[in-house]
Structure formats: C-alpha cells, structure tokens
Design a protein around this nucleic acid. Structure first.
Lengths: 348, 348
DNA sequence: CTGCATTTGAGGTACGTACCTCAAACTTTC
DNA sequence: GAAAGTTTGAGGTACGTACCTCAAATGCAG
C-alpha cells in the first residue's frame, strides 16, 4: 500500500533545480556559492529554495564533504582551573566532533597580552573555518576578530565577550546578571543585621570581572543598603595573593559578614577563612565549580557557587558553528548558557 | 603532497570485513544482526570491530536508512503547565528530529490510571523504536515497560522514574536532592528566628513529590531544627485547592515563615499569599519555571524556583535513543539533568 | 558419497550532497 | 556576424551505510 508517491518529507537539491528550471549543477553552484552564475539565475534558484524550504541534508553533506571543518580554540595559557575544564571538555567531545567531521586544535595564548592575542587570531586566517576564542576586550583584538570574520572564518567568543566586534556569537553567561545573583544570595544569606561585605576579583580591567562587580553593586545598593560593600581588591586570580588579601580583610573588619569572589583563585580565600576560624560564619560566594570549590561547598566554607557549564559552552560553540554551516536552525534556549547556582545540595 | 595513503580517520565496515577475512555482506549481516551467520563467524567479525574500534558512521547510516525511527512520547493528559512545556519543546525540536530521521508522536494518557498507562505502553510494541514516558511507579506499569524493552523497544522514563523496571534510561532530576535544595534555600533565607514552615504537594503517592518531601525533611531536621515543618498538605496540583489550603495555613499559623511547594499549581499559593498581604515577608520556594512562577519571582512573591529544563530533557531523551542506535558515546554530564535554581536575578 | 540446508560471497541500488570535467548554449563586443 | 568570453547542462565519482538478490561454497545428515 505504498500508494502515493510518498510526499517527500524533505526537499532535495534536485527538487529545487526542477522548480527553478535549472540543472542540478547550476543549483549546486548557487547553493555552494561557486562562481559563473548569472545574477538572474541565482535569484531564480534562491526563490525556489525559499518556496520549497530547502535546506541541505546535514547527513548527506557531512558524508560528501571532502575535507573536515577546521576549528581552532584559543584559550589562555596558564593554570587556571576553569580553562582546564574547557580543555577537558574539548577532549571529551572529540568523538562527537569526529562524527560531525570537525577537526579541532587547542592553542594556548597569553590572553593578557592583546597584541599577541591579535597575532594569534590573524594567524588563523584562511586556515580555519571557525575560531573559538576566550578573548579580552581590546581594540587590537576587536579589529583582528573583525578581519577574521570578514575573511569568512566564523568567530565565536567564549566566556568573555568582545561586544564591539562583529563576531558571530558570544557563548557565555551574562556576567552582570551573575553579579546580581551573587548579591541576592549574599544579601539573603546574611539577613538583616548590618555588616560589611568584601569583594575580591582578578582585575577590574577584565570585562567579565568588572561586569560582575557592577551587577553585584547594583543589587547591593538597591536591595541591601544595610550591608556596606568594601572597595574591591584585585588578586590577579592568584590563590596566594587572594589568601593574603583575605587575611588582611578579616583582620581589618571583624564584622565582615560576607565575601564575594568574582574571579578565580578561590582556594586562597577558603584557606584564609579557615585559618581565621571564620569559615562557617562568613558567607562566601564565588564562581566556577571545580573539585576545590565543590569540596568547599560541602564543607561549608563556601555557601554558593555560581557556575557556567564548561561542557555546555564547548558544545554550544560547536553547534552554533555547525548550524551556521548547514544553515540549520539555532535553538536559542539550548544555546543560552545558564547562570547555574550550586549549593551543597544540588551538586552534580 | 597527498603522499601517505592518508591514514583513515575512521574505520569503515569494509575495513572490518577485510580484517575479519569475510565479505562486506557478512560483516554487514553481523553488524545489523541479520540471521544466517555462523557463531564462529560472528565472533571473528566482532573481534575485528573491536580491534579497529569500528562504529558505523552516523551520517552515512542516517542517509541510507530506509525508514525513519519511530518515537512515541507518552505524556499525562490534562492542563499541567510543565507538561505543556514538554510538548512545546518536542515541537521546537521537530526540525532537528527531521535531520536525524526521527519521527515522533505525542500521546496523551491519563497517567493516574496505571492500567490505562500500561495499555498505552503495550500498544506501542512493535510499532515504535523508542518510547519516552512520564510514568507513575506501579507494578502494572513496570511490567509493561519490561515487556516493551524485551521486545526491543527502547524505553526512557521522563521526569518521574520507575526504577524497578528495566528501562534504558531515566531522564530527570534527582528529586530527593531537589527537596534538599529547597530546604537549604528556605533555611538560609528564613535565618535563625524560630518559626514554622509549611509543605504543599500534589500527592504523597506521586514518586517525585514524595521524594522531594523526603529530602526536604532530611535537611530541615538536621540543619534547621529551629524551624518546625508542618504536616504536608495535598492539593492535587490544583491551584484552587492550593489557594484554599494556603489561606487556611496562613490563618492557623501567624508565625508561618516559609512555604515549600513540592508540586504544581503554585498560582493558587501566590494568590493566597498576596490576598493575606504576606507575599513579601513569607519565603516561598516552588518548582518549575513557568510564565507565572517567573512573574512571581520578579514580584517577590516567590523567592526561588527549582527547575528542570524541559527542553534539555526532551533533547536528552532523544540523544540517548540515538546514541543507543548508533552505538555512539553518551556524554554523561551532558545528559545529567541539572537541578536549576532560579532567583529573580538569573532568570533566562 | 549424495542431497539438502545453511552459510558466505559478489554485486548491486539507494540515500543527498560535494566536487569535478567537458561540451553545448548563450552573450557580449567590435 | 564572427570571435571571444560567459553561463549552463549533462554526466560522472565519491562518501559509508542499509538493504536486496542470486549464485557459489560449505557443512551436515543419512
């Protein structure tokens, strides 16, 4: 009973050619943007594509493609734990990437040096189909990103955005909102007693840290005016420095009720809190779930961890690139990176 | 300079056949479990598969497959908001499913009737490659699931598990942990003043609600002994009933500091709180982010919403099925459904 | 050893795209 | 209107699997 010519579930390129009254070869030339097709013909084909809702079958495309897509990840050099998580996740998705015919390489760059980052970006021109970069926002970097994009490479910023550039996507959380979230948690955990709150961060010149601090202050000022937010101190994301700074803060402010760490290197803060015997009574909220922060949550030193899922970010970046290439749909709420709140009770 | 015979990135079935010293046809018979192959030969081929790490190329498989995979979703009938979200998400993933050659159908079932659910499950036997079901835990249902599984259909439980069955996967959160999380939030938001906490839920005979209540009590008893948890009241997930119950509770307990709603129908609780003029001072934590609960968070009526991402659950269920069919890898931490905590500040 | 059933091999088609070549048809230009 | 260029069509191959058929080889029972 295979009666009807089985209405096609999906239009093929041949259908498009037929509908546009051109040959398969010409339709193919249009779709793959190969030269030698008159503008009028291009228009005819595009019209047919729209009429039929044609989209290349990604499975067939993957099979037929001669060379795999080349993707580079540009990550900060150094021993930052979160960056380590990102690398791990790239590794963890290797098999999936192979299935998608994506070949990737991770490049370590000194992100704090804009010139070098820009150089590394430009070095990818023509060699990569996509570049995923954890960048800092600086004019030199911005222009390198713009050049790369114009050369046809799709550029995706990761974790920290360069909003003025013409990158295709930003994959990461809204850091202002993350800061606001931290403020609400601290405000509500501390309660109504008037007291002081300290803020530690890597550097105010890092876009994400600055944005978090901004959001934090907003909510603190508006909703928890009985809490005094001290001047933020910069620890360069370095545990040792953070430890010293925290010790100092605890000594200077016996009525310090809470600490918000907007950057990395939380281990140092925990150590200082424990050394001072104030680990449990002081509310401590920080970012990024790592083995250390996990332990600190369970122990009670940390009260909440705000996290962005590294694996999700890596997969999201790759999916966005794929969607771009296959002209496929983007599921906005799948690609939105959540501001995860972890307490000791909902740890994964 | 295409010198080397380009070491294959991926072993093909032909490589396997060669390695096992059988023909492509035989290798194919083994992989697709077609009959008429001697046990010894099967073993030879399997050995070769393991040696070469062969896995069918999913893109090629999808292209070649004659019939799409048939998937049925069995969801509770009725107007539950969260179930509506699930349906929406199934719809939202339609195009992606088409790409994967998955055909799906949503069937509404009266989930509170075990016999009917079991019947609906068994009706899928032989007609579906996979069944995703939001079930209730009951012996009749369990045995239907087991029968389906044995018939070769892959069964995935959604949101609420049937742990004694031999279903392939459970996609949903750890409800005990979710209850614990609610308790910690309430405990910390209320602070140190002794007071009372009410618990509302749909029914204690629903596995997920019961588990949440269990986890909630655990943490309350251990960590917040100054808070008295009242006997839980059952509102059948019905807003109207919840409203009446809440009004009653508020009247009976002027020192009620917090409400934990482990089920659905939170709208009624909010209404009662507002009517009593205690919306802001009473801590109210509930489940599932919907337009209503979102508004309640922003307004301050609700203080936190614990959520499981419906879209993630749908995609996860489908990905697990696909991974099963293509013998692909399962990324455990991609498929783990998070216990999301939403405050007014980190809403998506 | 014969006859029969079972197992295996050989070969094919189809899926939809990417990417290639070559000839035919069409424009443009002087 | 002829020569030179540009645009189009026709046809092919390859990707790796699913799924099919038919003949040849093999094993086993009597």
């Amino acid at each position: 009973m295979e009666s009807k010519p089985s209405l096609k579930v999906r239009a093929t390129l041949e259908d498009v050619a037929l509908d546009a009254q051109v040959s398969l070869a010409t339709a193919d030339r249009v779709v793959n943007q190969r030269p030698g097709v008159r503008a009028a013909t291009v228009a005819k084909v595009h019209a047919a594509i729209r009429r039929l809702g044609y989209r290349p079958d990604p499975a067939a495309a993957r099979l037929a493609r001669a060379h795999p897509r080349q993707v580079a990840f540009l990550l900060p050099a150094g021993s930052n734990r979160f960056v380590g998580l990102l690398s791990e996740q790239i590794e963890a998705n290797a098999e999936w990437m192979r299935d998608q015919r994506i070949e990737s390489e991770v490049l370590s760059v000194d992100v704090f040096n804009p010139a070098e980052l820009a150089k590394a970006l430009l070095a990818q021109k023509g060699r990569r189909d996509a570049v995923v970069v954890m960048a800092l926002d600086h004019p030199v970097v911005r222009s390198a990103i713009d050049l790369l994009t114009q050369a046809g490479t799709i550029v995706i910023t990761l974790v920290s955005d360069v909003p003025s550039s013409i990158r295709q996507h930003y994959v990461g959380i809204d850091n202002t909102a993350a800061g606001r979230t931290a403020a609400t948690l601290i405000g509500r955990f501390v309660g109504k007693r008037p007291s002081k709150v300290a803020v530690l961060l890597g550097s105010l010149s890092l876009r994400d840290h600055a944005e978090r601090y901004f959001g934090f202050n907003q909510v603190m000022a508006q909703e928890h005016p009985h809490l005094v937010v001290l001047q933020p101190v910069e620890g360069q994301d370095d545990p040792a420095r953070n430890e010293a700074l925290t010790t100092q803060l605890l000594r200077a402010h016996p009525d310090l009720a809470a600490i918000y760490s907007a950057g990395a290197g939380n281990g140092g803060i925990s150590a200082a809190l424990r050394a001072a015997g104030r680990a449990l009574e002081t509310v401590f909220v920080g970012h990024e779930l790592t083995p250390d922060s996990r332990a600190d949550l369970l122990h009670g030193t940390m009260d909440a961890v705000i996290n962005q899922d590294a694996g999700h970010e890596i997969r999201s970046a790759l999916r966005l690139a794929l969607a771009h290439w296959s002209k496929g749909p983007v599921l906005a709420d799948q690609e939105r990176i959540r501001i995860d709140i972890y307490l000791k009770d909902n740890l994964p």
